[in-house]
Design a protein around this nucleic acid. Sequence first.
RNA 1: GUGGGCGUGAUGGAAUGGUAGACAUACGGGACUUAAAAUCCCGGGGCUGUAUAGCCGUGUGGGUUCAAGUCCCACCGCCCGCACCA
Length: 872
Amino acid sequence: MKTIERYNPRVEEPRWQKAWADAKSFEVSNSDPREHYYVLEMFPYPSGRIHMGHVRNYAMGDVLARYKRARGFNVLHPMGWDAFGLPAENAAKQTGSHPKAWTYANIDAMRAQLKSMGLSFDWSREFATCDVDYYQRQQKLFLDFLKAGLVTRKSAKVNWDPVDETVLANEQVIDGRGWRSGAIVEQRELTQWFLKISDYSEELLSAIDGLTEWPDKVRTMQRNWIGKSEGLRLLFELVPSPLTAATSIEIFTTRPDTIFGASFIALSPDHPLAAELASANPAIRDFIAEFHRQGTATETLEKAEKSGVFTGLRVVHPTRPGETLPVYVANFVLMEYGAGAIFGCPAHDQRDLDFARRYGLNVIPVVLPPGADPATFAVGSEAYVGPGTAYHSEFLDGLDVDAAKKEIARYFGARAVDNRPQGVVETNYRLRDWGISRQRYWGCPIPVIHCPTHGIVPVPDADLPVRLPDDVTFDKPGNPLDHHPTWKHVSCPICGTPSRRETDTMDTFVDSSWYFARFTAPEAAAPTIPGIANSWLPVDQYIGGVEHAILHLLYSRFFARAMHKTGHLGMDEPFKGLFTQGMVVHETYKDAAGEWVLPADVVLEGMGDSRRARLAATGAPVEIGSIEKMSKSKKNVVDPDEIVRTYGADCARWFMLSDSPPERDVQWTEAGIEGASRFQQRVWKLVQDSIQLAELPASGETPTAEIDAIRKLTHRVVKTISDDIEGLRFNRAVAQIYELTNGLGKFSATLEAAPSANGVAALRESVQTLVQLTAPMMPHLSETCWTALGRKGMVADAPWPEADPALLVESTVTLAVQVNGKLRGELVVAQDTPREEIERQALSLEAVARILDGKAPKKIIVVPGRIVNVVA
RNA sequence: GUGGGCGUGAUGGAAUGGUAGACAUACGGGACUUAAAAUCCCGGGGCUGUAUAGCCGUGUGGGUUCAAGUCCCACCGCCCGCACCA
């Protein structure tokens, strides 16, 4: 045999990328009559460089897209850029580059990187959210939402990031800090634009049940985020007092059944009544001030002890006339939820109990746990929150918790305080309206004008887009649009009076809430062409990081509904299937000075506990640290460009898909990428061997049984890989390909010893199938092999191999034989062997007979095709 | 605190309640080579010095079952989300 030249990805990969581009292989037509399939990976922020997480994400989507295309679907697989956002402005401040120039330069760099990965994107549909063409349509959507009553403007306490000098949504505040800057968030009162996502709370919650192709984890997170709770709004009559003119206090409770155990009322420090009382009471004023200091200054909010201050007010107990309850201002009551005030029932709520113990308030149990003795049951340091029956509760006595809730709601509904029903059943949601105003330059301008006479005036459609001015400066804090000398000065579209243009821009989460729809018709004059959008959407498979489980996915679900309402879309749910992939992690390294060291600068030696690392340059020792998510700050990153240069894109893709299940983290290792590279050469060698074998003079004949075995292996693998790709089990698909390659390699070796015409033909057929099966993962290698095998055209255009059902059934089957559940032997029998015969053969196995020792078995269980268990 | 997930060889991980450890990596042995790399072959959970034999083995303890990594209960540990939501 001739020596085989190694496969050279550096030459082959660019060549095929050009071939696909020239042939427009992945450009998709909206009018293609074949069944549509939409694969989408979360589009990246153009930070400047792609990272391994991108490679993993897009490799997964690409496997699915290429597979579905081979399966005959008309596959939409687009890519774009989530291109507005703060880093561009930060770069402008630091380097003086213009955000626009910076962003588009980054996009060019990253596009080139993605193209070097050989991903089957339809690049003709590419756009960036900072393209005027895109944000113009977004402004149109905003105006339509405004008209439809989905937008509101209100003064609200907002999360203010003092470093980024902008407002953050609740979702962007993590542990009291800005999600990007990490700065401790302050509370400020500002007039803001809001999208009324809370109108859809119930709808967004109940529709989660229908998202059966989403991970349960994400569905649970969204349910919790929407946070529905049903309870009672309840009025407590104030005992008349000179301290206030108010006559009642409204509270919210989910446990109205415990009303007889109430022993105090607590107001949030942000409650208007608390503020009113504070003006005349220094103790309350100090308490509120201290609360605000702590509220934002310490991140250990959860550890703060329950504390409060008595207001001097008392309320009438609503079910025990004659009794009154003290009113406190307490640090554990949130103004944002319910009524900003509660009644405390210490026996059945832990927080109330902690508070009551501290201030010596009554603890009256009113719910008796099942089986407990009413005479002796008592609450110590732990509140009882479980089920039970009401007692010490007069007309509620004997009712279970649910029945008591209903009964007490009816009771309070029929009574009146301040000429209102005393109790009203209410459903509360944690989900707040979505504040989208940002005091930033690099975002989509909100298309409204503030007229002194007409107030808020929408920019007429004909005047869209409201373009971002290019001539802005970043030398002052705050919003550059606001500092611009002329941009905000416009005349009112209605009356022509000098007016002020809105200088707030939209939260970038708005940009990413509808891009999936824009991809279906990226050139359309309107935001979408509904007929076309409806033919593609919902996205069949959406793939991305779990960090977007709440924000992006919830906003997109809201946007689909809002776009449906305004006629831009015909459905409510944007993503039919969702897959959240794991992260790419890597070991960390630190030098003697404690500085992080790049993996590329480290040499590893030894194994297990004796593993050592040192600097490649100097040989100085390096400490091996924990395995963590790849991040620039810890320098545990591997540059995809470097990997593509050294090993090729196919190897990077292959490694990212092998080993770890896609939903779990995958650890990048040198050994792993080396293994991928070895495998690539093995496939290449196998293909070359099969070609050379055909050129050798054939002699003799390979036994039919061997040919059958190789064909059966091939077809079994075709079947399982197809199932694995459909189920996104890429690691198993990879393992199947290894198995097939190993099998064909062995077969090829036997043919080398004795080449036969029928054997070589069978090998050629199977090798060709192998090449096709490998194509979604290693597309470049597969194209080169395909051509080498003498096939016309490209694998990218070839239909997926079909598994022959006849080759999937085995004529014989191997049965495991157990005695009392312990494996004792094996039995090879024909597929249709009758039960009695199997039993007979099992019993005659030597190992089985030995254990039975002449005694008759108690029972024999035969599971057809699987196992025989003899119960001795 | 609360909701969810996970725990399998040296390592990443396979396994519709039915032969635990597929596949890969590390490692050991051998072939080829002047040598190394590459490649190929063999071994590879532990123990019983040998293994055609046997015992043990999927975090711990119980249970259900002819049969449990898989189902149920309790506990331990790790990871993730939410978190004073009344």
